[in-house]
Amino acid sequence: MTTPALEAKGISKRWPRTGAVLADCSLRVERRTVHALIGASGSGKSTLLRCLGLLEPPDAGSILVDGALAVDQGVVAADRSVRRSVGMVFQEPSLFAHLSALANVSLAPHRVLGLDPESARNRACSALDRVHALHLADRRPDELSGGERQRVAIARALAMEPSVLLCDEPTSALDPLLTREVMAVLRELALDAGTTMVVVTHDLDFVAAAADSVDFLHAGRIRISGTADLLGTRGLDDELDRFLQRS
C-alpha cells in the first residue's frame, strides 16, 4: 500500500464559545485522487479543511502529509517544508492587492522556495497557463473578474507544487457563470493533470464528475464515506438523504 498524500486521524476541534465543531474526523486521501467534502452549511467542512491546511490547530488528532507528521496529538509541527506541501484555495481569492497576477504567483516560489527570479517566473507562468490565465499575468487583482481572481489564486497555490491542494468552496463567492469557469478549471486539474485535491463544495455535479472519494459531514462528524456513487444512493443514511434532497 502506498503512502497517502494526506491522512488525518481523529481530528477534534472545539471553539471556546460555540462548542464542538469537529469530533473524531478521520480521512485518507490517496495520491492523484480528488476527495470531496460535502455537507450542509455549519457541518464543519471548512473547519476540517483549515485543520488539514494547518491554519487551525486541532484540539486532538494527527495529520500526516506524504507520510510526514504535520500535526501530532493536536500540536502543529513547525516544519515549514510540510506546510509548503499543502496548498490552499480559499472562498475569497485573497490575492495580494499590491502585486500583479504574475507576481502573486511567483512571490512564494521566489521568497519561500528560494528559486531565482527567472525560475520563479517560469514556474508562475506555467501555473497560470494551467488555469488558462497566462494572458492575465500583468493585470492587477482589481483589474480581474471574480472568476479570474480565483483562477489566479489556484495558480498561486499550484506554483508551490503542493502534494495536496485544498479548496474551500472556491466558488461560493461567485455567480453561476463564473462558478462554471472556475469549476471547469478545477475539473481539468483533477481529471487531466492528476493533481491530488481535497475540495469542499456544494457543487454535486463537480463531485459526480471529478471526485474519486466523498465524505459526508454532519454536525462535525464524518457520517458516511464512499465514492461519488454515494450521491446516487438513497436510504443509506437519513441525513444524507435529506442533504441530497435539498441540494
Partner: peptide
C-alpha cells in the same frame, strides 16, 4: 484583512 495572512501562511511565508 486576516485573509491576506491566511493566504500567505498557506503558501509557507
Amino acid at each position: 484583512p486576516q485573509s491576506q495572512w491566511d493566504a500567505a501562511r498557506a503558501l509557507g511565508f
